[in-house]
Write a protein that binds this DNA or RNA. Structure first.
Length: 153
DNA sequence: GACGGCTCTGGCG
DNA sequence: CGCCAGAGCCGTC
C-alpha cells in the first residue's frame, strides 16, 4: 500500500492505493490515511487530480476502486460512478436506479460511508429539494459541483 | 431498537 | 412561494 495527496478544487485530497491490485482503497478530504503506508509524491493518480483540476472532469474514469461493504452499498457505489460529471442524481433516483426503490435514506447513509470520495462521486448525489448533505461540509460539495459545471446549487 | 447526507404531505403566513 | 413539523421508509450497527 502507498499513500499520497494532491490539491483539488475541493481541497487537498488524501488517498491510498493498493500496489498489488493498483486499485484505490481510500480517498478523503481529511488526512486520515494510515501513515505506515509508503508516501509517493507522484503517480498517475496525482496527475489525474491535476487534470481534473484543470477541467478534465473524466480524469478518474479508468481508476479501479476497492471498498468493503454490503451488496447494497456496492450497487449504490457502482451506479454512482455512472453519474457523469456535470450531472447529478437525487438520493431517491439513485436508489431506484440501483434496484432499491424507496431506499433514499439508506442511500444517504451509504454516501456518508463512502471511503473513496471524489473518485466515487458521492458529491453528485443531491437531495430532491436542495444540495443535500456532505461528509466534509456542503461548501466543499458545492465547490465540486460548481467546478463540474452545475451552478444551480 | 436506534440512527442517518431522505421525501412527501399538510398547515400556516 | 417559503418554512416548519410529522410521519413513513430503508439498510446498518
Amino acid at each position: 500500500m502507498w499513500r499520497g495527496s494532491r490539491k483539488t478544487p475541493g481541497g487537498t485530497l488524501f488517498f491510498a492505493v493498493n500496489d498489488s491490485s493498483g486499485a484505490i482503497i481510500r480517498a478523503s478530504f481529511r488526512d486520515e490515511i494510515d501513515k505506515s503506508f509508503v508516501l509517493r509524491k507522484s503517480s498517475d493518480l496525482h496527475t489525474a487530480c491535476d487534470r481534473y483540476s484543470d477541467g478534465d472532469l473524466n480524469a478518474f474514469d479508468y481508476f479501479q476502486v476497492e471498498q468493503s461493504g454490503t451488496d447494497f452499498t456496492g450497487a449504490i457505489y457502482t451506479h454512482m460512478r455512472k453519474i457523469g460529471p456535470g450531472a447529478s442524481m437525487t438520493y431517491g433516483e439513485l436508489a431506484r436506479t440501483a434496484g432499491f426503490p424507496g431506499a433514499a435514506r439508506a442511500v444517504g447513509s451509504a454516501c456518508a460511508r463512502n471511503e473513496i470520495v471524489l473518485i466515487v462521486p458521492c458529491h453528485r448525489v443531491v437531495a430532491a429539494q436542495g444540495i443535500g448533505g456532505y461528509e466534509f461540509g456542503t461548501p466543499i460539495k458545492e465547490k465540486l459541483l460548481r467546478h463540474e459545471g452545475l451552478d444551480n446549487f
